[in-house]
Design a binder for these strands. Structure first.
Lengths: 258, 258
DNA sequence: TATCATTTGTTCGTATGTATC
DNA sequence: CGATACATACGAACAAATGAT
């Protein structure tokens, strides 16, 4: 073992050796890697080199390091949470969004903001238009996955509806209110992946090297007028969003560039 | 400047100071940070501490470091590529998937594989069933974003169609073939975010701390029978996937757990 | 082309702090 | 409390990439 003679930096060779050992099943998911001291002896390198190698594997998301305990091979998520992003409507007009099975941890917290260039573009509004912002933090009871949700409601949308007095209305209930107000609703949604900001890591309990799955949903009313913007952020390793697609006649999503 | 007295590890304080300086606009996107030597003088810490701080900012995706040149504040992507994942069908029956504007760099490469537990589940097949695998690598002409696409076609699907002889048929054309074979097609698609494997980073030209947006699409035929599985991997910072949603009567996506 | 200064990358050594068991 | 393990911090030297001379 420990044949290290290939080209490249030493720590990369050590990292590659450990990576291959994991792939070969030598170190099983959940079980600890040898300690730093053991790796130093095993590969006959210095401590910084071993730490450098471990740091690389960490950034790849392959291992998890716990202070005072050791390094452990990351287990694949036992259960992937699927977020069904389809929207259903009962006979009585009630909407369901798939978030009903999640447990509300914090919020709804209402604050007043303004459109940014980005959100203004999506809502078809100029920058600095006033908005209601509503934040919610959810928890999935079975898996412990956390989910941050933000609703942005332009004043123009809230006007003349119950949303003006109760912007913290549940998204699904908001859809019903807007329908009652005469709108025929459709939605466009985009998903992207990015690394979390430090405070997002905190709020969503994200481990190292864990990306955020970030979805943006715009509710469109009659004449495709944008009414509400919803943003959803969740651990990308633990959750996925699901959509149902049917073929349609030629039609283009609003192609929008920042 | 350089007031460092808050709690926590030194390198975290340095990282926080730099992070705040970036947020305050002191270092603008695209412009270089002070060199390591300058940061050492500025904050009166050792080189390992400065490097540790820089390493942290790198893992956050906030800065980019170029060997021999310096560290640079990452610029927000100038142009987000939107992948319209809706499927359209012309009057003459031709399908369009939104990939037609991408430039094929490599492939299609056909190989024979078998279902894994994961792909078997999605295709409604047992493990180790034989499959055609078809790989393609695309490039977006305007933005240079790369996109990896894989199509998995069970033998049972290819049988009695042109796909048996030409599994490397374009996905859109494959839809037409299956429609001609008597199927009424619908699709389900899931998206998730994850860190790339080393070879994915290579193939997709991903910089540090860049997640992959990974979508999985299943083509369903008559009786919701799964026919084809497509996987798409792309730079999560540069691209997003777009869907159009309309409310439907209660219906559940196949809830599937690994 | 060749050389040099600058900048980041790699590797060693060493000491001490802190979390876990 | 002690043993083990990872975290932080300093110092030092050489390697490799870059850009200008």
């Amino acid at each position: 073992m420990a044949e290290i003679q290939r080209p490249g930096a030493l720590y990369r060779q050590v990292a590659a050796a450990i990576r291959e050992a994991i792939a070969a099943g030598e170190y099983e998911p959940g079980s600890p890697l040898p300690s730093e001291a053991q790796l130093i002896a095993r590969y006959e390198v210095s401590r910084p080199t071993v730490r450098n190698a471990i740091s690389a594997l960490r950034a790849e998301g392959l291992i998890e390091v716990i202070h005072g305990k050791g390094s452990f091979v990351r287990t694949a998520p036992t259960q992937l949470t699927t977020l069904d992003r389809t929207i259903t409507q009962d006979e009585d007009g009630t909407f369901h969004t798939g978030l009903d099975t999640w447990q509300l941890l914090e919020g709804p917290t209402v604050h007043r903001t303004h459109t940014t260039p980005e959100t203004g573009r999506l809502l078809g509004l100029p920058t600095e238009e006033p908005l209601f912002g509503v934040d919610r933090l959810y928890n999935h009871p079975d898996t412990g996955t956390r989910l941050a949700h933000r609703t942005l409601i332009p004043y123009a949308t809230a006007e003349d509806t119950e949303l003006a007095d109760h912007p913290d209305t549940d998204p699904a209930a908001s859809y019903a209110i807007l329908t009652k107000a005469g709108h025929t609703l459709t939605w466009t949604e985009t998903t992207r992946a990015r690394m979390p900001l430090p405070d997002e890591r905190e709020a969503l309990h994200l481990p190292d090297a864990t990306p955020v799955l970030h979805t943006t949903r715009v509710t469109h009313g009659t004449d495709d007028r944008p009414l509400i913007l919803e943003e959803l952020r969740v651990n990308g390793d633990h959750a996925r969003t699901a959509y149902r697609i049917t073929a349609r006649t030629p039609h283009h999503l609003p192609v929008t560039q920042p």
